[in-house]
Design a binder for these strands. Structure first.
Length: 874
RNA sequence: GCGGGUGUGGCGGAACCGGUAGACGCGACGGACUCAAAAUCCGUUUCUGGCGACAGAGUGUCGGUUCGAGUCCGACCACCCGCACCA
C-alpha cells in the first residue's frame, strides 16, 4: 500500500491552531480536579531559542501532556528572565536600547517556542522587565525591609579604574577589566543585602524533606550552606617592640581544635582589622595588601592563586603554652567573610596550610597518626593528612581520637581565662553569607529607596510605586546611566519634602527569578501574589532546569519562599516539590586549516573506509573534526532550532532531544541522529495508516477469543504502555523512546505478516496502533494528532484520557532462568512462574552442560533465586 | 584550591534491590525491491581464536567483599559542572 509522506510543515501549524482554538492549555485557577504544576526554568531572552531550550521544554511538555491525559488540571506557564547584563552590552555594542533589544528578542523567541508545539498557557506569560512584574517585586522588597530581612552594609566590588565602572566576575579576566584591560581593584560600596542567613538552619534541615530532588543537588546545597561546629580561640599577641601593631589578641575560628599542637603560624585575611591597621605604617605590607585585593572578589580566583603571605613580625602565644610563640602572617588565601578572618595554620593536616608552610619554611608537625601507624614514623611530605586516627605529639591529648581531643581542648579552653574572659568558646559557623543584591547597572529592577540628607534611607511610599526605569538613557560612557540621570535621580523626600536622591542601584537578576513561579499563579494581580491561589498551586510539582542552577537560583528561591511566607504572601516554605536537572546539548566542533572555528551548517561529512572526513561546503577545503563541546557561539558548534524545525519539523526535534541520552546527562546533537528520528516519524505514519486499513474500526470491542499471534501483539502493546507510563513518572524519557521503538517493531512485524488479518488480529492491530499513538502523544503531539485522526477519531489525542494497561497482559506464567556454573552462564531453562526451588534444582542437575561441567566433582551448592537465576557451585 | 558529578561495543546508551552485559537507536556490512537511485523491507554486527559447534576475554585503572560485581567497598586516572556581580 502507498501512503503519502507525513508533512510536518503542513500538519504542525494546523494542530497548534486546533489546540489554541479550544484553549486546551489555558489553566483555570479554580479547576476542581487535582492540580499539577509543571515548570521549566524560564529563559533569558538572549535572541534566539537554542537546542538546550528545546530539550528543557520538551521534557516539561512530556510531563504536562501526560499529566493532563491522566486527568490533572495542569499549570504549565512560560515567561522571560528579562533583566540582565547582555542587554546593556548590546546597548553599548549595537547602539540599541536594552528595552528594545529585550522585547525584540522576546517576540522572536516566543514565536520559536510556539512553533515547537509546547502545551503552554501563554495567557500567563510574564517578563521580569515589565513594570507590572517589577512593581510587585519592589513591594516584596519593601515588605522584606519592614520585616527586617533587608539591610545595608559595606561590601566589595570589582572596580575598573579606567572605565570607572563596577565589573561582574565574568568581566574580570586574569585580574583585568575585559574592555579596558586595566588591573582590577576592589572597592567598598554600601550595598543592600537580604538576610538569607536568618534561615540557615531551616534551609539546611529542610533539605531532608526534599525527597524528590536529586541527591547531588541536596548535597551541594548542604555543602554550600556549610554548617560547622568549631571553636573561637583567642591568641594573645606578644609585645612586639619596634612593630607598629595594635596590642591585644587575634581571635581565630577553627573546626580542628584537636590539631592545636600542630599549629605553626597564624594567618590573617588582607581585610582583617589588624592587617589594615598595620598596613598604615608599613609600605611593604601595604603593597602586599593591595596585591591581595587585586585578585578580584571571586573565591575561585583567591583559592587557585599561588599561596602568598607576608610576615607581620607579630608573635602570637599558644593558648596552652605562653612560652610558645608563633609568627603572624597576612595570607592571600584567608577569607574575611568566613569565621573571624583569621586562622591558625596546621600544615600537617590541611593542604593549604601545608603549601603555605613549605613556601615559607615553617615547621610541619604531625599530630594525628593514621590508625595503626607507628607514631615515630609518621612524616608529612607534600600531602596533608586529613583523615581520622590517633593524636600524637600533642602532650595531654596523645592517644585520644581527634573527636575526643576536640572536646578536651574545648573543655579546657572554655575554662581557661584571658583578661577575665574564657580563652575559647564553641561556635556553630555557617559558610552561607547574606545575599548582596545591589547592582550598579541600568537594566534591572530599581531598588525602591530614596536617600534624604535629613531623613536618611526612606522607602518609596506605596502610592508612588512602581519606581520605573527611565527610558531616556544613553550608553555612550561607562558606568550606570541611572547615576547620571539627574531628572530621574533627584526627587523630593517623601517624608520631609527636602532634596533627596533615588537609590540608583538595581537588583541582582536572581531576585527576579526567585519568585516568578509564585507570580505565575496570579500573573496579573495587583499584589505580588493572591495568597489563596498561590497556596493552591504551589509548590511546583515538577521543576526542570540545568544543573548550573543547583545552588544559587534554587537556594535563593527557597529563601524567597520563606521570606514571602514571613511577609504573608504565601503559606509554604518550599517552592519546588520535585526537581529535575537536565544535561546540556553538545556538538562536535570543527576547525579549518587556519584554526578558525567552522559552523556545522557550512560543512559536509563523508564516511570513507570507516573514517569520517569533513570538508567545507563552498570550496571543499578539508576541515578538522574536533572535540565534542557545549554548544556555544564562540566555537560555532551551534545548531539553530529554526533550521531543524524547517527541515524536519518540531516533532522530530523533540523526539531526538529525548532519545538515547538519559535526560540528566548531556546529549550529543548529530545529523544522523536527527535523521533517525525523522525516519521514525515517517515509519509511525506508515504503520498507523496500514493498521487503520487492516485493523477493526474505531470502538470495536475485543473478540471473545484471541490467538497466540494476536495475544503476543497485545502483550507488546500493553507492556510498552506500562513501561512508558512508569518511565514518564520517573522522567526517564530515553527509556520511553526505546519502548516506543519496540512497540513499533512489533506492530510492523505483525502488519507485515498479515495481509488479511482475522478478527482477533485485526483488533490487536488497531489496539496496538492506538496505544502507540497515545504513548507517542506527549513526545510528538502533532504526529499523534494526525495519526489519531487517520485512525478514525474525530476527537483530539490532547483531550483523550491516558489508556489503561491490562494487568492480565502484563504477567506471564512462564519464566526463563539463566543457569550459571560457578557464576558463568552456561544454559537457560524455562519453567512455570511459580515453580518451586526443588523442582528447578532437579531440572538443572539433568542439564547436559551442568553434567559436563561438573564432571566427577561434587556439587557444593545450588543457588536458586526464584524468577531470577540458578547458580551451580562446584 | 574547594564542592558535586560522569566513565559500558565503531558511536549514543540499556541492564529494576548484587543475578543472562550490550535492550533500543545510530553507523557499518550483506541481501531483497528498482532500468537506476532515493525511500522501504530482511539479515549480520563487543573483541580474540575457530568453517563450525564452541572456547576465552570484556563495563576508565588497580585491589577487595561475594556462589555471583557494570552495580557494593578502598585507592587512583581522565573529563564535565558550580564557587556568591553570567544567567
Amino acid at each position: 500500500m502507498t501512503t503519502e509522506r507525513y508533512n510536518a510543515r503542513e500538519a504542525e501549524p494546523r494542530w497548534q491552531a486546533s489546540w489554541n482554538e479550544r484553549k486546551l492549555f489555558q489553566t483555570d485557577a479554580g479547576d476542581a480536579r487535582p492540580n499539577y504544576y509543571v515548570l521549566e526554568m524560564f529563559p533569558y531572552p538572549s535572541g534566539r531559542i537554542h537546542m538546550g531550550h528545546v530539550r528543557n521544554y520538551a521534557m516539561g511538555d512530556v510531563v504536562a501532556r501526560y499529566k493532563r491525559a491522566k486527568g490533572f488540571a495542569v499549570m504549565h506557564p512560560m515567561g522571560w528572565d528579562a533583566f540582565g547584563l547582555p542587554a546593556e552590552n548590546a546597548a553599548i555594542e549595537k547602539k540599541v536600547h536594552p528595552k528594545a533589544w529585550t522585547y525584540d528578542n522576546i517576540a522572536t523567541m516566543r514565536d520559536q517556542l510556539k512553533a515547537i508545539g509546547l502545551s503552554l498557557d501563554w495567557s500567563r506569560e510574564i517578563a521580569t522587565c515589565d513594570p507590572e512584574y517589577y512593581a510587585q517585586q519592589q513591594k516584596l522588597f519593601l515588605d522584606f525591609l519592614k520585616a527586617g530581612l533587608a539591610y545595608r552594609r559595606q561590601s566589595k566590588v570589582n572596580w575598573d579604574p579606567v572605565d570607572n565602572t563596577v565589573l561582574a566576575n565574568e568581566q574580570v579576566i586574569d585580574g583585568r577589566g575585559w574592555r579596558s584591560g586595566a588591573l582590577v581593584e576592589q572597592r567598598e560600596l554600601t550595598q543592600w543585602f537580604l538576610k538569607i542567613t536568618d534561615f540557615s538552619e531551616d534551609l539546611l534541615s529542610a533539605l531532608d524533606g526534599l525527597t524528590r530532588w536529586p541527591e547531588k543537588v541536596r548535597t551541594m546545597q548542604k555543602n554550600w550552606i556549610g554548617r560547622s561546629e568549631g571553636l573561637l580561640v583567642r591568641w594573645p599577641l606578644a609585645d612586639a617592640p619596634g612593630v607598629n601593631a595594635p596590642a591585644g589578641e587575634v581571635e581565630v575560628y577553627t573546626t580542628r581544635p584537636d590539631t592545636l599542637f600542630g599549629a605553626s603560624f597564624l594567618a590573617l585575611s588582607a581585610d582583617h582589622p589588624i592587617a589594615k591597621a598595620m598596613g598604615e605604617g608599613n609600605p611593604a605590607l601595604s603593597a602586599f595588601l593591595d596585591e591581595c585585593r587585586r585578585a578580584g572578589t571571586s573565591v575561585a580566583a583567591l583559592e587557585t592563586a599561588e599561596k602568598k603571605g607576608f610576615d607581620t613580625g607579630l608573635k602570637a602565644k599558644h593558648p596552652f603554652d605562653p612560652s610558645w610563640e608563633l609568627p603572624v602572617y597576612v595570607a592571600n588565601f584567608v577569607l574575611m567573610d568566613y569565621g573571624t578572618g583569621a586562622i591558625f595554620g596546621c600544615p600537617a593536616h590541611d593542604q593549604r596550610d601545608l603549601d603555605f608552610a613549605r613556601a615559607y619554611g615553617l615547621p610541619v608537625t604531625p599530630v594525628v597518626a593514621p590508625e595503626g601507624a607507628d607514631p615515630a614514623s609518621v612524616t608529612i611530605e607534600n600531602v596533608a593528612f586529613d583523615g581520622d586516627g590517633v593524636m600524637i605529639n600533642s602532650r595531654f591529648l596523645d592517644g585520644l581520637s581527634p573527636s575526643d581531643a576536640f572536646q578536651e581542648v574545648a573543655r579546657r579552653l572554655e575554662a581557661d581565662e584571658l583578661d577575665g574572659r574564657p580563652v575559647a568558646a564553641r561556635k556553630v559557623n555557617w559558610r552561607l553569607r547574606d545575599w548582596g543584591i545591589s547592582r550598579q547597572r541600568y537594566w534591572g529592577c530599581p531598588i525602591p529607596i530614596i536617600h534624604c540628607e535629613a531623613c536618611g534611607v526612606v522607602p518609596v511610599p506605596d502610592d508612588q510605586l512602581p519606581v520605573r526605569l527611565p527610558d531616556d538613557v544613553t550608553f555612550d560612557q561607562p558606568g550606570n546611566p541611572l547615576d547620571r540621570h539627574d531628572a530621574w535621580r533627584n526627587v523630593a523626600c517623601p517624608q520631609c519634602d527636602g532634596p533627596a536622591r533615588r537609590e540608583t542601584d538595581t537588583m541582582d537578576t536572581f531576585v527576579d527569578s526567585s519568585w516568578y513561579y509564585a507570580r505565575f499563579t496570579s500573573p496579573r494581580a495587583a499584589s505580588p501574589t493572591v495568597k489563596a491561589t498561590a497556596d493552591r498551586w504551589l509548590p511546583v510539582d515538577q521543576y526542570i532546569g540545568g544543573v548550573e542552577h543547583a545552588i544559587l537560583h534554587l537556594l535563593y528561591s527557597r529563601f524567597f519562599t520563606r521570606a514571602m511566607k514571613a511577609t504573608g504572601h504565601v503559606g509554604l516554605d518550599e517552592p519546588f516539590a520535585g526537581l529535575f536537572t537536565q544535561g546540556m546539548v553538545v556538538h562536535e566542533t570543527y576547525k579549518d586549516a587556519s584554526g578558525q572555528w567552522v559552523a556545522p551548517a557550512d560543512i559536509r561529512i563523508a564516511e570513507e573506509g570507516g573514517a569520517r572526513r569533513a570538508t567545507r561546503l563552498d570550496d571543499g577545503a578539508p576541515i578538522e573534526i574536533g572535540s565534542i563541546e557545549k554548544m556555544s557561539k564562540s566555537k560555532k558548534n551551534v545548531v539553530d532550532p529554526n533550521d531543524i524545525l524547517g527541515t524536519y519539523g518540531a516533532d522530530t526535534a523533540r523526539w531526538f532531544m529525548l532519545s538515547d541520552s538519559p535526560p540528566e546527562r548531556d546529549v550529543i546533537w548529530t545529523e544522523s541522529g536527527v535523521e533517525g528520528a525523522s525516519r521514525f516519524v515517517q515509519r509511525v505514519w506508515r504503520l498507523v495508516n496500514d493498521a487503520a486499513a487492516k485493523g477493526t474500526p474505531t470502538g470495536t470491542a475485543a473478540p471473545a477469543s484471541v490467538g497466540p499471534a494476536a495475544e503476543s501483539l497485545r502483550r507488546a502493546a500493553h507492556g510498552a504502555l506500562a513501561r512508558v507510563e512508569d518511565d514518564i513518572e520517573r522522567l526517564r524519557f530515553n527509556r520511553c523512546v526505546a519502548a516506543s521503538y519496540e512497540l513499533a517493531n512489533a506492530l510492523g512485524q505483525a502488519l507485515q505478516a498479515e495481509a488479511a488479518p482475522a478478527d482477533d488480529m485485526a483488533f490487536a492491530l488497531r489496539e496496538a496502533a492506538e496505544i502507540l499513538v497515545q504513548i507517542l502523544a506527549p513526545f510528538m503531539p502533532h504526529l499523534a494528532e494526525e495519526s489519531w485522526s487517520a485512525l478514525g477519531h474525530a476527537t483530539l489525542v490532547a483531550e483523550t484520557p491516558w489508556p489503561k494497561a491490562d494487568p492480565a497482559l502484563l504477567a506471564s506464567d512462564v519464566v526463563t532462568l539463566p543457569v550459571q556454573v560457578n557464576g558463568k552462564k552456561r544454559d537457560e531453562i524455562t519453567v512455570a512462574r511459580d515453580a518451586d526451588a526443588k523442582a528447578i534444582e532437579a531440572l538443572v542437575r539433568e542439564l547436559d552442560v551442568v553434567v559436563k561441567a561438573i564432571g566427577d566433582k561434587p556439587i557444593r551448592k545450588i543457588i536458586v533465586v526464584p524468577q531470577r537465576i540458578v547458580n551451580v557451585v562446584v
